[in-house]
Computed example of a mutant assay.
Amino acid sequence: MTGNGNALRLLAYAFAAVDHGSLRRAAKALRVRESSVSRNVLKLEQLLDMQLFERDFRGVRLTEAGGAWIDVARAHYDGLLDAFIQCARDNKDAKTLRIGLCWVTGGEFLRRLIDRFGSRYPDVILSIEDIPASQCMAAIRRRRLDIAFTHDLGPVTSCCSDVFWQERLFVLLSSRHSLVGKPAVAWSDLAQMSLLVPAGPEGPRPDLRLLERIVADGGPAIQTSWADQATVILKVQLGQGVTFAEESYARTVTIDSAMWKPLEGHNSVSSIRAVWLDSNPKLSVLRLIGLAKNMAKRTSDQNGERCMRSQERCTAG
C-alpha cells in the first residue's frame, strides 16, 4: 500500500485528468510532464486493481466503474482537503491569544500582566476586546475567546475560573457634597443618595452582584439609565447622585466639580476573575494563566509583608 502522501498525489493526478479530459491538459494545469501524469494515473489503477480511464487519441474518459469510484473518492478527498485547510487556519490562530474584558476597566494588574506576557512571548498576537456578560461564557465555550476577565458571574460550569486580583472601589461625589471632606466613605454614608449606574453601550460596567449586596447592606438606591459614563458623570457634577468605579479608573480620570473618594468597609473591593476552557489546546493560555498566578502570589506576599511592617511599627510605637 502506498503512503498517505503518495495516495493524495495519485488522486490529484487522476482528478486533473477527469477535469481536463486529457493527460496533456492535466499536465499543463499541474505544471508537470505528461508522462508524469500518465505514470501516476497508472499507479492508481494498479493500486485499485481497476481501470479508471479509457484512453484514445482524443484524450481520456472514465469507465463506468471508474466514474462511480471517482465520485466517492472525490467527496472524501474534498473533505480531507478541508480538514487540512482548517488545520492550517487553527495553527495560524494558535499564534493569537484572544482576551475578552467583561465589565472590567483594566487595572494595573491586568496592564502589567499583558505587558509582561507580550515581552516574554513576542510571537503571540494579543487580541483584546469587550464582551457583554450575557455572551461571556458562550464565547469561552465556543473558543471565540481564549480567556475572559470579568466580575463575579455566579457559578461557573464547564469552565475553569480563578480570582487573580482585587481592586478597591472609589465613589465619585459632587464637589459640593457634604462628604467630600472625609478621607474615605462607606456605603452606609450614602444611604440617602442615588447610585447612578450607566446602562449604555459605553463606559466601565459595574459588578451586578456587587450592586445587589450594596442595596442589601443598607447602601444607596440603585438608579440605572440608558446613558454612557459621560452622562452619569454630568449628573454627579449636578448633585443628582453618585457613581463609582474601580481604583484603576478613578486614579486616572480627573473630573471637574467632582471628587473621587475611596470606599471602606463592606463591599468596598471588587474581585476580578479569569475564565477559560481547560480543554483549550493553546499553550499561550496556560502561559498567561501561570504568569497571572505567579504575579497574584507575589502581590499577595508583598501586601502581607507591608501589613507585617505596619503592625511592627505600631507595636514599636
Rank of each mutant, 00 (worst) to 15 (best):
A17R: 01
G241E: 03
T2L: 11
W187S: 02
F109C: 12
R273F: 02
M308Y: 12
S225A: 12
G154L: 09
V104L: 07
R116H: 02
Y249L: 14
S36R: 08
R89K: 15
M259K: 08
L30W: 00
A258T: 02
A83W: 01
V275E: 02
A292G: 13
S300F: 12
E247K: 04
P262G: 09
V41W: 02
R306Y: 10
L179D: 03
V72A: 15
V18M: 03
T96Y: 00
G3V: 09
R273K: 11
R287G: 09
V37D: 00
S279Q: 07
D93E: 10
Q86T: 10
D189R: 01
V18F: 07
R89N: 14
Q135A: 14
L291V: 02
C87V: 09
S300P: 00
G3M: 04
Q135S: 08
A221G: 05
L113F: 05
V163Q: 08
V215H: 12
A230E: 03
I114K: 03
Q237G: 10
I85M: 05
D146V: 12
A316Q: 13
L10V: 04
T252Y: 00
A83Q: 06
D90G: 04
L210S: 03
I222A: 06
R298M: 15
A245L: 06
G3E: 01
E64F: 13
L263F: 06
T224K: 07
G200I: 01
A138L: 02
L283N: 14
A29I: 11
S268H: 05
A94H: 01
Q223T: 15
Q223K: 09
I70Y: 10
Q51A: 12
L210D: 07
E312K: 07
L179C: 02
G181R: 09
G290N: 09
W69R: 05
P122C: 11
A88L: 12
C87F: 00
K282S: 01
G67E: 13
L153I: 14
V163G: 11
L291N: 00
V253I: 15
V18D: 01
P122A: 12
Q229L: 15
R309H: 05
V185R: 10
W69G: 00
P198C: 01
I99F: 01
A94N: 15
E202D: 09
R89S: 15
D49L: 14
A7R: 11
V32H: 00
A250T: 10
M259F: 03
E264N: 05
E54T: 12
G79Y: 08
L211D: 07
N267Y: 09
L97V: 13
A138G: 01
F109K: 10
D90M: 13
M308W: 02
A7C: 06
V197K: 08
G239S: 05
P204D: 03
L286I: 03
D49F: 01
Q135M: 09
T96H: 01
R306Q: 04
D56P: 07
P201L: 08
L11I: 13
A227S: 14
Q223L: 08
F149A: 03
A258Q: 06
H266T: 11
G66A: 12
M50G: 06
G304E: 11
K28G: 04
K28Y: 00
A29W: 06
R213W: 11
K28R: 13
F164K: 07
D278N: 08
D78C: 07
G66D: 06
I128P: 04
W165D: 06
I255L: 13
M308C: 11
L179M: 00
